[in-house]
Amino acid sequence: MLRIENLTKRYGDKAAVDHLSLHIQPGEIYGFIGHNGAGKTTTLKSVAGILPYDEGEIYIHDISVKLSPIEAKKIMAYIPDNPDLYDFMTGVQFLNFVADVFGVSQADRESRILKYGNMFELTEKLSDPISSYSHGMQQKLAVMSALIHDPKLILMDEPFVGLDPMAAHLLKQTMREICDNGGAIFFSTHVLEVAEKLCDKVAIIKDGKLIRSGTMEEVKGDASLEDVFLELEAEKD
């Protein structure tokens, strides 16, 4: 589903991501953890086709993000850590806009908007301006807009920040459901307990370099993910 080969992104002389390689299979929820500034967001943005990278390649369903960014974006969705949605639109206008961009049929968009709107208890508010939404509501709307075209791959940067416990629970369920239906999710998080419970695989990044990746069991063994993470952080220092 997602193949990252030797991804390198530099800001000036500093490599924010340094020869990172990662493969994600359909059906997998892949967690991406690391300290602040480790290169998680840079990696996710590069995969999303937002950030041009210096070396390496990224393939989504064998489509190169560098060579065919539009085709690659058609089958994925990206939710940033702090989504700045169009606050000059209402919720439903934004969803219509995103659905129009992806060419989602009237029937499909109706069923998905109502399904996820009801799930996240946002349906009632969809005709209100986004400027009146709380941070959590905007996060829910961003999730809804990401799901509206039934993407094969979803990239999420800290998706649980700002969500209430119920919404976070529903999002976790939805993530599982998407992957059970053959999709894949690549998300970053600082909440190691969530990663431990939710992810099939996990990758740990430090200073732009991938220091460990694999199934949850391979990465943490008998210890907790938190212990392993802290140990790895200390080791390299």
Binding site: Y86, N96, D100, V101, R109, E124, K125
Partner: peptide, 23 residues
């Protein structure tokens, strides 16, 4: 903010060029 009741009819599809222009 003005509160407006949501109706299913608010969900409307349009051509990409129209959606971009409207935006």
């Amino acid at each position: 903010e003005k509160k407006t009741e949501f109706h299913n009819t608010d969900i409307r599809s349009s051509k990409l060029s129209d959606a971009l222009f409207r935006r």
